[in-house]
Design a protein around this nucleic acid. Structure first.
Lengths: 224, 224
DNA sequence: GCCGTAGGTTACGGACCCGTAGGGTTCGTG
DNA sequence: CACGAACCCTACGGGTCCGTAACCTACGGC
């Protein structure tokens, strides 16, 4: 009796139910909605802790719909991760406009914090471990993958400064780890403002504990 | 038919089976064995990915034995985490003997890498997320908890230097994150030797990218 | 030589959860 | 107005896993 429709879950922003309280979305809309819900749930309860039924239920829809769109739980997860990864990378690489290394650092740190703030759920997913068998190595966290993207920039800088470029990965991991864990911590306390956190991170990464400034300032200009 | 005994799993080091290939351990022995096996499995497959049956089987024993000792999966996990946490903290705080901040930093970094090398499985567990509802906050990783233990030392130093001690947590998280992610990366590549990694980490944390030395050296003397 | 206790076992109950089979309803279009 | 496509549902099948109940056996002391 009366299949073919679903009760509105009352979730996302601007669904204008055609009329009445039943929604029948278009394919693309439903797909996007499932991605949003999946991202949120994966962020909150991890991959294994989230069930397909839960996702479907939250979308006001039944399980087979999810399978229709993504072929299964891993399919959905893969798409979510891929999008989030791209989002972060675009944000960071897009922010790297300066030539001076220190400003580069500032921009990268700020971009990462920006991402963390705007796409909190995505960040949580990226920080958690992935269930997928990594092809490249045995990294536990997706964030480690991000770090490998930083090696290039650092490698160039090292070469120019006469340092051993083989050490770039080490420093890249260190820098990313620094920002990532601080970001994770910042998500909970939310105490210093974003710009201040960025300034202190740059302070530490640039001057070191030895030459720490007590009131660090970001040198670059930016919008937010 | 012939209950009360178990086939030897052939796992741990120095079990001298009383005679024949059946083992009947004492309570404490079995408990320790289960802890060892649990630690290894949790490190490899995470909490949710590990089943009680698997642990029991690997110990050459049946499920109820695990429940007898730890009351359930979470019980075992809790004990494993607690021990590992203590192990790490003891190692780090025990290494902090110097008065000069830079040597303090060196010793801490070295101790953490030491722990990572000696208790790899434990470190993997500490880095993964915990399924247990944290009481203090909503930290995702146990490592974040470790960082809060560093705040004190840093806080004192800040006070002495005239910096705002309220910022100690931020810098603590940053430093721990730096070492932790680098350690995680180091577990896979194992490329530079431990002492070298420590030297570079200290190099970064102390001098910053600005004043980086190309061939950093650990200033303190130590055994290993 | 008996018996209590410590250490262990088999066998389920019940709760989820993934993924699929098979079928129903609405909308747009000719 | 018929009809096909897009969208969606109910209902399982097969499996995994946690935790427990009920029962068993060796061994040391009295």
């Amino acid at each position: 009796m009366m299949g073919g429709v679903a009760i509105d879950g009352g979730n996302s922003s601007s669904d204008k139910p055609r009329r009445g309280r039943r929604v029948r979305m278009t394919g693309a809309e439903r797909r996007q909605q499932l991605l949003d819900i999946g991202r949120a749930l994966f962020a909150e309860k991890g991959f294994e802790g989230t069930s397909v039924e839960e996702i479907a239920a939250k979308a006001g829809v039944s399980k087979p719909v999810v399978y229709e769109h993504f072929g299964g739980k891993e399919g959905l997860y893969a798409v979510v991760v891929d999008r989030e990864m791209r989002q972060l990378l675009d944000g960071v690489t897009g922010a790297l406009t300066a030539g001076h290394p220190r400003e580069l650092l500032e921009q990268a740190a700020f971009a990462l914090l920006d991402y963390i703030e705007s796409y909190t759920d995505g960040f949580r997913i990226l920080v958690r471990d992935s269930p997928v068998a990594q092809s490249t190595g045995t990294f536990a966290s997706l964030i480690s993958d991000i770090a490998t993207q930083v090696e290039d920039i650092l490698g160039l800088e090292f070469k120019a400064r006469g340092f051993d470029p083989k050490l770039a990965p080490l420093y890249a991991q260190a820098l990313v780890g620094m920002v990532a864990l601080t970001g994770q911590w910042w998500l909970d306390v939310r105490k210093p403002k974003k710009a201040e956190v960025a300034a202190h991170l740059v302070n530490l990464a640039w001057h070191g504990l030895d030459g720490l400034e007590s009131k660090p300032q970001l040198v670059g200009r930016r919008k937010s």
